[in-house]
Design a protein around this nucleic acid. Structure first.
Length: 890
RNA sequence: GGGCAGUUGGCUCAGUGGUUAGAGCGUCGGUUUCACAUACCGAAGGUCACAGGUUCAAAUCCUGUACUGCCCACCA
């Protein structure tokens, strides 16, 4: 009907159906105690702003799983949410303030928090809208934010429980300090980059007598905090110096030379300066030798009062000054270029300053052990499997986790310090007094928790924990945790630890890790490169279904995906192809009223049996692929079926039947195949499939027999009885014949409107191919066309082109056009190839090892192939000899 | 320093032991044919990085080499 537009226009359709689904409440699961629910807790995006393609991939993969399971009849919960993202959000808001010329200190903590809440609320709304744009079928009624009351209570409860079990402690340690953010960071939040620096050789004069010890360092400015020089006890060069005193230049502090195994004799001079307050190794050495700590820097990485004359200088300015001064005194022995790895803040890229500081830590080892066990014994499966080893490696060497942050945005640490007795009160609810002495002079710790602390509880805090809620009982543990491999340690590992700790049970059964999204040429997307694709823009241009296709088709777990214009266009084209195939079928339905209401499709003809067989093979394969998390491959196979089988062949063949009134109507099979294809595809492309499903439903007028929406219709199940090997064999032959005739047409430049004469000769398939004569005639534009047995074949003329196929010969008379010599060569080439293959098969089939060890069906297959090839070769040889005699006659 | 992954047509990638290795894009030639030019028809193009090994059978498993990318690591 002309009212269906030629091209699919996504915009309005997408909005219409999303609103419809929402209104119908399909996203909200109905608890059914007799059924096992399918549960995905969405990785909460940071409330820092827009969603990018990585988020779109997350949402798409999770939506594919959710929709598929929902269609399978499982109560499906996909719980959405957002993360306050402590440091990330604070950095963004600080930048925002800076544009107005303000700093957070100027407006104060309360005002800053208010501004950040406003930002977060706006951002949350934006994120929700974007997810909805993507078609995400999540239960918005259960949406959570990490700073919501429930999750906050979970954070405090978890903290207090760990504290009471002595799994959280406060201690002075070397931590990663970001001088820009002015907070401690965990090891994971530090990005190591190779820096082309220098190795400076500095002389420390001996306190008594002449001479000096030369130390090598990349950070000369830290010499101000040195409290010893260490050498390896086995190092003969320095044996006499152990116990001696050296003098730090400029500030003239006297420090000892000590012996410690940590020193590598082969590095630098073999003498190591010990700066306990600014280096992790040095800190350990200092602890062993009870050396004093001298912190020479302020939190902003300027030099402090301990730096003497350098006080007030920025750390790198100080380095320059130190080097000049040492040079002047002749104490800078040499400088070598030296490349080494330096930590940077992963949020603001500022160089990290290792610094001694009093912080809160989680004692991780006892939490890690059960988490390792859960994966080892298979209770939790990681996909792809290779990440299991990475997980074990990290968990096996886990370090204590620094959880306190000197930020303003986040969960306040639930600890109060007593001004009177100096004891600590740790409590879920705000305490009125010190639990130790009853003093009311208590002050809450000013710090907040690492944002990943609350994320770690996400699998159960979102379901109501620490309360014992219905949701928690029914939906915990979750089914799949789907996220990027880049946050395996940050998040997945911690969820497993915290889930086991708080719930006594694993938080999810499977972990599906997806890869990174890159641009079309494999480059990482970044604002600096200017190759960022904005999801909303892509949606506006190509439609959601096309974007989802671009993100997921033909990809697999753990592998990075390139997304760019070509992939998006390919997705859009496919949607359009499906649209037009449906458009054709709907038009057919209108004109073919007589058969349209037949509910049960009854495959009658060969092509009906064929497409039905192929469809059910597809369903079987897709089911297996989905069950093993191979979504990209499943999608690809659906694509191939719809385009290359259903559209290219079945629909084209069926058009012939539609033209002749006498033939049985193809409409029931047409509709059935379309309808099942739509259901198969729905998890991947929800919008176009719903629109088309509804259109079909409306035209059929059988609304009561179909579900109200495709998203709650059952996912197709393969019918093994539909497999039709005989029909497949015949159709393979038909396709081969049509291909070969088209090939000849193109080769001999037969115009598109011209028909060529063609004769098919076959014995075994005679009756079946005769029945398909009209199909061959129409699709190959062959007329007159005949299908006969081989006996009836007239002797070949040199004007005939003979094509020897698998189970037939096709003769195309092309008077005056055939180059006999070239034909002879072509046939000779072809028979030579076949001879080679036969030879190879013969070798194999005479090999007793193969016959004895290979499975019988494989051997049988080879025999059949050999027989087929020998038959074909025989026919080829016949043609060749006939051609030879024909040309000799001619 | 340790580990992981990748190397398949011009490009981007599928292909998890079964024998003629696939797709999309691009290229070349043809077609505006009544679902679709976001399309159709036809074609060209690959000793599956290299070298060994296991196996009746290897793009696929193992070992080594090379290159590329990523992750981890207290390389003063």
């Amino acid at each position: 009907m002309s009212e269906i537009p030629k091209a699919y226009k996504p915009g309005k359709i997408e909005k219409k159906w999303y609103d419809f689904w929402l209104k119908q409440g399909y996203f909200c699961p109905k608890k059914d105690q007799s059924k096992k629910p399918f549960v995905i807790i969405m990785p909460p995006p940071n409330v820092t702003g827009e969603l990018h393609l990585g988020h779109a991939l997350t949402a798409t993969l999770e939506d594919i799983m959710a929709r598929w399971h929902r269609m399978k009849g499982e109560p499906t919960l996909w719980l959405p949410g957002t993360d306050h993202a402590g440091i990330a959000t604070q950095v963004v808001v600080e930048r925002q303030l800076a544009k107005e010329g303000l700093t957070k200190e100027q407006i104060g903590r309360d005002q800053f928090t208010r501004v950040t809440w406003e930002w977060a609320n706006k951002s949350r709304e934006h994120i929700r809208r974007q997810h909805q744009l993507l078609g995400a079928s999540c239960d918005w009624a259960r949406e959570r934010f990490t700073l919501d009351e429930g999750p906050t209570r979970a954070v405090r409860t978890a903290f207090v429980r760990l504290f009471n079990r002595d799994l959280i402690y406060r201690r002075e340690r070397i931590i990663n300090w970001c001088p820009r953010c002015q907070t401690a960071l965990s090891d994971l939040e530090v990005e190591h980059k190779d820096i082309a620096g220098s190795l400076y050789y500095i002389r420390y004069p001996l306190a008594q007598g002449k001479g000096f010890v030369t130390v090598a360092t990349t950070r000369p400015e830290t010499f101000l905090g040195d409290t010893a020089v260490a050498v390896n006890p086995t190092d003969k060069r320095y044996r006499k110096l152990i116990g001696k005193i050296v003098v730090l230049p400029v500030i003239n502090r006297q420090i000892p030379v000590i012996a410690d195994d940590a020193v590598d004799t082969s590095f630098g001079t073999g003498a190591l300066k010990i700066t306990p307050a600014h280096d992790a190794t040095d800190f350990e050495v200092a602890q062993r030798h009870i050396l004093p700590l001298v912190d020479v820097m302020n939190p902003d990485a300027t030099m402090n009062e301990n730096a003497g004359p350098y006080q007030g200088l920025e750390r790198f300015a100080c380095r320059g000054k130190v080097l000049t001064d040492l040079q002047d005194k002749g104490l800078l022995e040499k400088t070598e270029p030296y490349s080494h790895s330096v930590g940077h803040c992963d949020r603001c890229q500022t160089m990290i300053e290792p610094r001694v500081s009093l912080q809160w830590f989680v004692r991780t080892q006892s939490l890690a052990e059960p988490a390792i066990e859960a994966v080892r014994d298979g209770r939790i499966r990681i996909i792809p499997e290779r990440f299991t080893k990475i997980y074990f490696d990290w968990m096996g060497n886990i370090k204590d986790w620094c959880i306190s942050r000197q930020l303003w945005w986040g969960h306040r640490i639930p600890v109060w310090y007593c001004q009177d007795c100096s004891e600590v009160t740790c409590s879920v609810d705000e305490p009125r007094a010190c639990v130790h002495c009853g003093s009311k002079q208590i002050i809450q710790d000013p710090d907040v928790l690492d944002t990943w602390f609350s994320s770690g509880l996400w699998t159960h805090s979102t379901l109501g924990w620490p309360e014992d809620t219905d949701d928690l009982r029914y939906f915990y543990p979750g089914s799949v945790m789907e996220t990027g491999y880049d946050i395996l340690f940050f998040w997945v590992a911690r969820m497993i630890m915290m889930g086991l700790e708080n719930m006594g049970e694993i938080p999810f059964h499977s972990v599906y890790l997806h890869g990174l999204i890159r641009d079309e040429s494999g480059e990482k997307m970044s604002k600096v490169r200017g190759n960022v694709t904005d999801p909303s823009e892509a949606i506006g241009k190509y439609g959601v279904d096309a974007l989802r296709f671009a993100l997921t088709s033909g990809t697999s777990a753990g592998n990075d995906t390139n997304v760019g214009k070509p992939k998006l266009e390919s997705g859009r084209n496919f949607v359009n192809k499906l649209w037009n195939a449906s458009r054709f079928i709907l038009q057919t339905l209108d004109t073919d009223g007589s058969q349209s209401k037949a509910a049960e499709p009854q495959p009658r003809s060969m092509e009906d049996l064929w497409i039905n067989s192929q469809l059910n093979r597809l369903i079987k394969s897709v089911t297996e692929l989905m069950e093993s998390f191979q979504f990209g491959e499943a999608e690809q196979q659906i694509y191939d079926f719809i385009w290359s089988k259903f559209c290219d062949w079945y629909i084209e063949i069926v058009k012939i039947r539609l033209r002749s009134r006498s033939a049985a109507s193809p409409v029931p099979v047409l509709v059935d195949t379309l309808e099942k294809s739509l259901r198969l595809l729905h998890p991947f492309m929800p919008f176009v499939t719903e629109e088309l499903w509804q259109m079909v439903k409306q035209r059929l007028g059988t609304g009561d027999q179909m579900a109200a929406s495709i998203m709650i219709a059952p996912y197709p199940i393969a019918d093994n009885t539909a497999f039709a090997p005989e029909a497949e064999r015949v159709m393979d032959s038909v396709i081969e014949i049509v291909h070969s005739i088209r090939n000849v047409r193109a080769q001999y430049k037969v115009g598109p409107s011209k028909y060529v004469e063609a004769h098919v000769y076959t014995d075994e398939l005679l009756s079946n191919l005769s029945a398909e004569a009209s199909v061959i005639e129409a699709l190959a534009k062959a007329r007159p066309l005949s299908v006969r047995d081989r006996q009836g074949r007239p002797s070949v003329k040199d004007t005939d082109l003979v094509l020897v196929l698998k189970e037939a010969e096709v003769v195309v008379p092309l008077a005056g056009m055939v180059d006999v010599l070239a034909e002879e060569q072509r046939l000779a080439r072809e028979s030579k190839e076949i001879e080679e293959r036969i030879a190879r098969l013969n070798v194999r089939l005479r090999d007793s090892a193969f016959l004895n060890r290979a499975p019988v069906e494989i051997v049988e297959k080879q025999r059949q192939k050999l027989a087929m090839l020998e038959d074909k070769l025989k026919r080829l040889h016949q043609e060749l000899s006939q051609l030879g005699s024909a040309s000799a006659d001619g």
